[in-house]
Every structure is written in C-alpha cells, then in structure tokens.
Design a protein around this nucleic acid. Sequence first.
DNA 1: GTTAGCACTCTAACCCGTCGAGTGCTAACA
DNA 2: TGTTAGCACTCGACGGGTTAGAGTGCTAAC
Lengths: 354, 354
Amino acid sequence: MELDARKLEILYAIIEQYQETGEPVGSRTISKLERLNFSPATIRNEMADLEEMGLIVQPHTSAGRIPTDKGYRLYVDKMLAEQAQKTEEPRDLPALPMQDLLSRRIDRVEEMLLKMAQILAANTNYTTMVTGPHSRKSKLKFLQLSPMDKGRILAVVVLSGDIVKNNILSLDEEVGNDELMELNFILNKRLTGLSLEEINLSVISELKNEAGAHVEVVAKVLDAVAETFAKEDSYPVYTSGAPNIFRYPELTGGDRASELISTLEEKKTLGSAIGSLPSESGGSRQDIQVYIGDEVPVESMKDCSVVTATYSLGDGVQGKIGIIGPKRMNYQKVVETLKETMSHLDGIFLQTEE
Amino acid sequence: MELDARKLEILYAIIEQYQETGEPVGSRTISKLERLNFSPATIRNEMADLEEMGLIVQPHTSAGRIPTDKGYRLYVDKMLAEQAQKTEEPRDLPALPMQDLLSRRIDRVEEMLLKMAQILAANTNYTTMVTGPHSRKSKLKFLQLSPMDKGRILAVVVLSGDIVKNNILSLDEEVGNDELMELNFILNKRLTGLSLEEINLSVISELKNEAGAHVEVVAKVLDAVAETFAKEDSYPVYTSGAPNIFRYPELTGGDRASELISTLEEKKTLGSAIGSLPSESGGSRQDIQVYIGDEVPVESMKDCSVVTATYSLGDGVQGKIGIIGPKRMNYQKVVETLKETMSHLDGIFLQTEE
DNA sequence: GTTAGCACTCTAACCCGTCGAGTGCTAACA
DNA sequence: TGTTAGCACTCGACGGGTTAGAGTGCTAAC
C-alpha cells in the first residue's frame, strides 16, 4: 500500500482535529476542510487504507477514527524533521515569562528549576517534571565546616553545577575552632576537584593521617560528601501541573487518574525512570525526545506521551525536563516551547559561568 | 428535645457505620447491633428526632441517614474530652515506623518532616501536609561566607531550629580570602542571636561602617538573611498521600478531585491557610485541633475534615501537621496517631537539643 | 478516480417498569 | 408511656426496549 501525499494530509488532518476535540474524527469533518475538498465517500476510502496501514483505528464500528501510536509517531517524526530544517523559528508563540527567571538573582538552581516547571505547566496545560542536575562526572567544588552548637558542626558540600547540600554533623568529641579551620584546609586541599570515583581509599587514608586526632570528623564529613554525590536524594524531582491531567478525559477514566497522580508523587521512581533515559546528543544540538504511548518507560503512563529535553550546566552536569500529556498533546507547541526554554537556560548559564 | 443517652448511642452507631461503608445507614442496620437491640421502628423514631435536632440527614427520602457537620462535631468533642481524661493510652495502634526517623542522623529538619508526612499518609490512608518550621521570634544562629568562584561567594545562613539556607552571591568586586574571613567575623559578631526585627537600621549602618570597602557584600548578605527569614520560601510545605483522596468517592465526584489536587499542589496558599491557624496551646499540652467541613479555612476542602497538630522545635520555632480526609474520617485513629507522632517528635528534640 | 445513495452498525439518551431498601405513620401491645 | 408490628409510600438502581444520530462500507453511476 502506497502512502501518498493525500493520505498523509488526511492523517494529519485527523490528528489535528482529534487534538482539539478529543472525539473520533469522521469523514464528513475532514471533507469540510478546504485543502481536502473531497466528498466524504472519497475520504472514507482513504481512511480505510490508513486503517489498514495501522495508522488510525475506530474505537468501535460506525465511529470516527482516532490515530494510533504508529500514526502519531509518523506525524511527530515528520514535524521534528521539519523543525530541524528551518533554523530560524518564526516564534509566533506567546513568549514565556522566563524573564522572571533570568532577571532574578539565581542563587539556588533547584528553586529555579521548580519555577521553570511551574511556568511550563502553566503555559502548556500539561504536567511537567524536572529532574535536578546530577552527573557521574560531577566534581567536588569545595566544602566548608563551621561550628554550630556544642558538639555539632555544619558541613556544606558544593559540587560542580552549584549543587549545594547542608549536613549537620553531631560529634562525640569536641573540636575547637582553630582545629576546624585546619581540617577545613586539609579537606579542601585533598578533595577539591575530585569526582566521587577519585575519592578512593588511598585519598581517604592520607586524609585520615593528616587529620590526626579528628578521624571521626573526617569520617562523618566523607559520609556527608558521599551522600551529596549519591543519587538517592541529591537527585530531586520537581513536578508541576499535575491537576492538568483532569483536562483530558482519556487520562482520568477508571483508576487512571489516581495512578498517574501516585506516580507523580513518587518522585524517586519517576526521576530514575525519566532521568535515566538516554540523552542522545548525537545529531542536532537541541536534544529533544518524544515518547508516545507504549514507548514511555513508566507503566502508569502508557496512555500518555512524554517529551523530554536534556539541559546541561556544563561540566557534565545535566538533568531532564519532561512534559507529560495525553497522546493527543500538541507536540508542535510542546517541542517549540521546550526549545525556547532550553535557549533561555543556555542564556542563564552563559551569564552565570561567563 | 432531649438528647438522651440512647439517642447519643444511635448517633455514634450511625457515625461509625458510615465511617466504614460510606453508605447512608438505615434503621435495620442499627437495630442489629447488640447494644441497641430495638426494633427498626423504634430506631426510626429516634432517628427522626436526631434529624430534627440537625445531627443527621437523609440524602433523599427513603434513604438511610448520614451525619451532619453538627453531628460529627458532637461526636468529636465527646471523643476529645474522653481522650483528655485517660492520661495513659492503651496504645493498641500498630506502632508507627518512626524509629527510622529517630535512628537516622537527623541532619536536615526538612527532610525529616517530609518523611514524617509520608509515614503519616501511609498509615492513615489520608492526605497529610506538614508546614516547615518557622517563627517570628526565630533568631540568627550564625552565618558563614565562603569563597566559591571568581566573583561569587557562598553564604550559608542558619536560624534557630536548624533552618539552614544557602545563597550564592555574585559580586561585582573581588573579595580576598582574608577579607572574607574578616567579614565573616564581623557579621557574626554583630548579627548572631538577633531576630529579624532586631536587625534594624542602626545595626546595619554600624555593620556597614565596620565593613569598610565591602559594603556591597554586606548589603547582599543582609538580603540573603532577610530572605531566609521571610516567609515566602523559607516556609516550605510538604504533602504526601494526595492520591488517597481517590479512596473516598465523596471527595472525587465532579471536579472535586481536580480542585483538591490543585490546592495541594499550590503549597504556598495551603501553607498560609493552614499554617496561620491559631495554635491554642491553652488547655492541654497536646495541641490538636479538628476542623470539620465548613470549618476548614480552605474553600476546596469544604467536603473534608482536617486535623492539625502544632509541633515545636523550641525557641518559638514551630510548624503544623495537618491530616486531610473525608468528613467521615476515623477521627479517633487520626488523633491518636498524631499524638503519638508528637511524642516521637518531642523525643527527637530532647535528644538533639539536649 | 470520484461521488451519490443506501443499508447497516453502534452508541448515547431516554423512557419505563420492577425491585429493594428504607421511611413515616398508625394502631395495637406491655 | 414506651415499644413494636404492619402497611403504604417514596426513591434510587437496574435492566430492557426504543429512538435518534453519527458514521461506516459497499455498490453503481459518473
């Protein structure tokens, strides 16, 4: 079966119509379009072919057609190819209010990411998630021990990408102020610039030697450092716009809504599922992936599509932004919005890193 | 109309039955209970009286009865009074797995609160929210400036209650390491132990004098301190168990589910609504409040009940824990669980503050 | 290759009768 | 006087039958 230009036109028309209404699209509706001014009967013939090719289906006999995953895939691939062509976008989308993010003093990356998730959710009417920045290649930028109370010190650990984490350490022994300064110096000297793998036994034993009496402190600090590197909770996940799923009846039937909301609340699972998706920075500079239906690696999202982008803070530190919506989401708008967001982010980092 | 003991018994029986099933309760069901072994007709007479008193209603003619807000209120007040009586609880509830929290090194209060919300949600099958600790009387414990990159320094601000916040400050001028140490010393000397109100103009101008050339740094640090004190985002709100609302059909009909989830996602609004509830630590030591239906100060929760407890980290630093469920929630269990949680918390803080 | 016509199918909406749960009322009973 | 049995009544839930409308596939004509 040949997939000629007209069939494609019809497929796209069905997809776009279905995106708007969420209702199966009939032949009459299509035949009313200017660019496809044929009689319903003709359209029906073509639709039968499209169905045979597995691009559309009928939910039941005598209903209109809706696109299949395969149909969407065709549509999306075409669109992505076209987007790659035109380097300069007409940018007729309403500009995102990202200026806020830009102009604000960006002191905590995490806060900015949450804000970004919120803006994206509000603008797209889909659900968004952002994984915090992380990296295997991430390095220790510096660490700082400060006295707090009797018996407790504050250890601040900073990784590349400005990932900051505080740890309050309770000590059994008493450590004087000067000694703490000394420890600070030693620790930074030995550890700064190292990645997690590079902090091996030999480094540790050297450190312990130098630390002299304060082995306990060193051990606890190293724990804290390890924890900062560790995925488990230095891998925050921000979500926003969860209630948007209620806009799409096909996502809220049965227990689906409950399952989706649960998945979104379980940020750890979500983060590792989405965060570990490959970021094939192969071809284009813009690294945007589209997962449709069954392609989504999360069980409860098999009725959804997910569009992800990878952002990068330099030094190999990166994270993912995901937009989660119904399979009939407006891929075009989502992809463009994400691209725009990525350039904003680049702007911010050029400015910050300088 | 007299509200005698038997009427009360019947009311309680209706409430308890309705808690289990969520279905209107008929006279036959009640008459089958051992302690109320009367004929359905007798029960019906009593029920008619209870309805006249506004304690129960029929959703429609010829349906069973369900409790009104007023009915619940009576029930809850009675229960709270009884709880206040017996000082020693039999504690037949399954123990909460709070040991994890206790045994873990508590380095970040916020993390512990989130964990607590999760445990409570999992144990009660309701939705929980916890507002982060805050206080008008909160004091600056200490602050620490450290060099990060060229032109940027890390300012760590610690308030009483171990509220820690990081701020990355971008400076126009270059500040040497020794100068930074000096600034550190000056700032801590002047500011440690002060509350937000006490950091007034005279303190600030003194500081600026002492700082000499580095007025810019001082200004930015003060900004950072103010921000840490400020409610807006040092007032985090953690929620957990949002999907639990789907267990209760009366909360998910129509757009209610969507509105509830939205409210839970808008943590700021939620936090200020719940967080600003009075914590009348008047009578009992255990400060537990129950809000039923319309008493809940959040529009989208008028079909819910909310039970709150106030926790306190000493030094006037406190926050709230809220449990959100249907009006037919198991108040008894929720109140007891909250009480247990509060004693756990007390345990943790006695240990920490020591 | 396109179109009009037609018979067919399926869903959604509606009506209607039935069933069962539950009520209120009354009259009889202890 | 409080309790109970009996009875007529009401209402929601359920199932079946009908109808209206949307949309299809097929065939024959253009």
